[in-house]
Nucleic acid binder design. Structure first.
Lengths: 314, 314
DNA sequence: ATGAAAGCGCTAACAC
DNA sequence: GTGTTAGCGCTTTCAT
């Protein structure tokens, strides 16, 4: 009988019918917080996505990739956000309040998990204690005698500026990750001598920042970066400028990535549990599907001292 | 009136209804040829995916990520392949004939684009001329006087072995990319002194291969690698062994990636148009949706001589 | 036990 | 032009 059906051209149950009937698509829309080409080059997003896909796969849920806002000029909301079938949405790298993507999802009534965003009552949130992690790494540098700091930050907002930012703008940071990590530095009682904004977490931007910061006459003794890729760019810049790390300048990052090509150095960094974050997001998705609103989760981070930080010179 | 509807709890048109009605889900299932954690760490897949997502986005199509076969022990076909709604499927890194994933898609009647696979009449194929590219880079090395070659290859099959492979197995390569690039070496008239299989295109595996190949007494003068990540691992291994590149050993890769952390070296490589490949795949998807079977496409590659290859020693 | 029917939310066709 | 209806393929309910 089954073979008879096959002969007649029946190709198996049509998922569309089941989906309409059940009201469920089995799809989780994941808005990566940026153009895909950038997100995908970012090991941080990748590892979170990996943990997430694994967890969702066990629940027979698929991941629909949705590009986040890319060019400042372009429409901030991808059409898929507006019209794709999805049971739950995940915003990786949730920006601040008043995110147009989040607003659109709210209007559609799509339950949403925001990663690294601001906790709000109607969305699930998963984040890390990055403010404290940043404070920890700055204190580590203070213990080593450092007093003159520069910060290399992620983008402040959709404009994605590149270059030194005057102090007046330090409090006008729209993107939460950038903001919290900058606040962490100040929690340790430090006012950086300079803050350099980068448009994205890439080695090349870190390198540019490193050249800009370290070729000044009055260069700082410690450079604190908001990501490991940025930090490794700064290390490479220092090496090319003939500066010893950490002899002349200490460099610290954030994320706790493996950076084999920095060998023999190991970057001092704040380790965050990336794959676990993906798993926790997956569990939050499951809760929302079950009609529950999970508690906001804040995962711990840990300082990992490496070989790129050392006693302040002189 | 519209606001009245909103007040009554209407949240906009339900995509599920439209999908059932139109018979179209607007979703393209992309089977990444590997566990996501590996694919995502691979800049090659990422760039193709980026070009693909961009092109599909313009057509209002979404990308559903589907993990490929990961562990040899696990089921070779992800449940999503069997039951997710999708209008077209894309197999990145299509293996050989008799791919269980492709068979499953055939049975479901899902039109499919295979990337880097074997052309077959009922599926669209997009690939590159990698066999010829490999022959070109080997000839480049021959012109430099090299006669003693080692090859570092991608995985032969799902077993993903790691280590030297005896000549008897050189013709039993299941995965087509590996096979074609190995054939390319022989097209140039070279029989490698040794072939080293790696389980995945990662710097660390290249490093292991480099140590194994270059610490032998009778080491070759040229190491030809099937990917840039593998090649850069070999370069790092050579450096750590105190060998000069290209003074003592020349190293060539494949893909044409930017590898800033290899600086000041630029890897000699065969450049393939990665993002363009994604765009071409996107166009093939569009053809299939329009009911056409696009011609098999083979994109060109180009040798990019860098600083990691030079005259053979002595 | 097996079988018939209703309805999920939409769109396209048709009637007013 | 505005309104009604049929049906996409499935699952669930209800009747046999």
């Amino acid at each position: 009988m089954l073979s008879a059906a096959a002969d007649l051209g029946y190709l198996g149950p049509n998922p569309l019918g089941r989906q309409l009937r059940s009201g469920r698509s089995g799809i989780v829309g994941v808005v990566v917080g940026d153009a895909l080409r950038r997100s995908f080059r970012d090991p941080v997003s990748i590892q979170v996505l990996d943990g997430l896909v694994g967890t969702l796969g066990e629940m027979s849920l698929g991941v629909l990739l949705i590009p986040g806002p890319s060019d400042p000029a372009e429409a901030p909301v991808d059409p898929l956000v507006l019209s794709a079938a999805m049971d739950v949405a995940v915003l990786l790298w949730g920006s601040g309040t008043q995110d147009p993507v989040l607003d659109a999802l709210r209007r559609r009534g799509v339950p949403t998990v925001v990663v690294e965003g601001v906790p709000e009552p109607d969305v699930a949130t998963v984040g890390i204690d990055d403010r404290r992690g940043m404070a920890d790494v700055v204190r580590h540098l203070q213990d080593l005698g450092h007093e003159r700091f520069a910060c290399v930050t992620l983008a402040f907002d959709r404009q994605r500026g590149e270059g030194f930012v005057e102090p007046a703008r330090w409090d006008e940071v729209v993107w939460q990750v950038t903001r919290r990590r900058l606040d962490g530095v100040r929690d340790a009682g430090v006012t950086p001598e300079s803050v350099y904004e980068t448009p994205a977490s890439l080695v090349e931007h870190g390198k540019a920042a490193g050249f800009a910061i370290l070729s000044r006459e009055d260069r700082p003794t410690a450079v604190v970066c908001q990501s490991d890729l940025l930090a490794s760019g700064v290390v490479l810049a220092a090496r090319e400028l003939g500066l010893a790390v950490p002899g002349d300048v200490s460099v610290a990052g954030f994320d706790g990535l493996d950076l084999p090509w920095l060998a023999p150095d190991v970057l001092t960094s704040v380790v965050q549990p990336l794959a676990e974050k993906g798993v926790v997001v997956g569990r939050a998705v499951a809760s929302l599907l079950a009609g529950q609103m999970p508690e906001p989760t804040v995962l711990p981070v840990a300082l990992r001292p490496g070989t790129t930080t050392g006693p302040a010179p002189r």
